Simulated scan of single mutants.
Amino acid sequence: MFRAGARPDIAAVRRAVEAMEKVAISHAGDEQGAGADEHGPWLELLIDGMTFDLSGMAPGAGYVAADLRNRYEVPADFGEALGEGLCLLPGPHLAGGRATVPVVRAQAALGAELVRRLPGALVVSWTPARTLVGREFYLSMVEAWLAGGSFPALGLCAFRQMLGGAVQSEGLAFFTGQELHFDNAQFPDPAAAVQLGLRLVNELVGGGRIAETVSLTGPDGAGVTLRPSGNGRFLRVERG
């Protein structure tokens, strides 16, 4: 995301990509090219054997991110007017695996390369979790993940306190089909619920939907039970 009027054009993005060691332009389209729309020029970028489509460069229309209610280290003056964005999506051959960890990892790495080389990029939005992440926070979390650290659960997922005091994840369902739910009767401290939730996301994000009750050991050594809700959309977290 850039301030209004600050998006790069396709020439600037080409120069940025040419300076990257592990990224290449594998295909390009202009405003009249196949697949072009109101967002104008687009580039197909190759990283780690996977291709991703980048669009929204000037002078075409930028993307407007809306309803990004989970914000992490976003500049104070980057308010409700969210500016304009470029959009980076997995290529068509990755459509079936867009929510798998290897594809998201490559997408996040490519996003970080673009943020580094495009100084006007102030924040990154990850729409499955409705997150808006400040430039430095995004770079640090992706770099830590690529260096062998844990999945960036705070950024590619989020946690919100609901009416009634329950804490619920947002964005985990993109990967697993289910969100975590912490009832405030068992988890009266929201901060403790979020801390446990971050650990659980790291355990769950590489797996699939959980259909049966599962017992785990929490980070403090205490038992934790994950119980699917009746509609299967949530995993209710219980102590013991």
Score class of each variant (00 low, 15 high):
Gly232Leu: 09
Gly56Cys: 10
Gly60Gln: 12
Val124Met: 14
Leu54Trp: 02
Leu196Trp: 09
Ala58Asn: 08
Met50Glu: 02
Arg117Glu: 10
Arg199Gln: 13
Glu143Asn: 13
Pro188Asp: 04
Ala16Tyr: 15
Ala129Trp: 04
Met1Gly: 14
Leu180Gln: 09
Ser215Leu: 08
Ala28Cys: 08
Pro102Asp: 05
Gln186Met: 11
Phe187Tyr: 15
Arg227His: 08
Val13Cys: 06
Arg160Lys: 07
Pro90Cys: 07
Gly56Asp: 02
Gly232Pro: 15
Ala34Tyr: 06
Val201Thr: 08
Gly120Ile: 02
Leu86Arg: 13
Val214Phe: 09
Pro190Asp: 11
Gly29Asp: 03
Asn184Gln: 11
Phe187Gln: 12
Arg160Asn: 01
Phe137Pro: 15
Thr217Gln: 05
Leu45Ile: 01
Asp183Glu: 11
Gly56Asn: 06
Gly97Gln: 10
Asp220Pro: 14
Ile210Asn: 00
Ala99His: 15
Ser169Ala: 13
Gly155Thr: 01
Gly33Ala: 10
Asp67Glu: 12
Val123Lys: 09
Ala28Asp: 10
Asp30His: 02
Pro90Glu: 01
Ala65Pro: 06
Gly148Cys: 15
Glu84Met: 10
Val237Arg: 06
Ala109Phe: 02
Ala144Ser: 09
Val17Arg: 15
Tyr63Met: 05
Glu44Gly: 01
His181Asn: 11
Asp183Gln: 11
Gly164Trp: 10
Arg239Met: 14
Phe182Leu: 10
Trp145Cys: 01
Ala129Asn: 00
Gly208Asn: 03
His181Ile: 05
Arg236Leu: 11
Val237Phe: 13
Val214Met: 15
Arg130Lys: 12
Phe187Asn: 11
Leu88Phe: 00
Ala144Tyr: 04
Glu84Phe: 08
Pro190Met: 10
Val237Met: 04
Ala66Glu: 06
Pro102His: 00
Thr176Pro: 00
Ala36Val: 05
Arg14Pro: 00
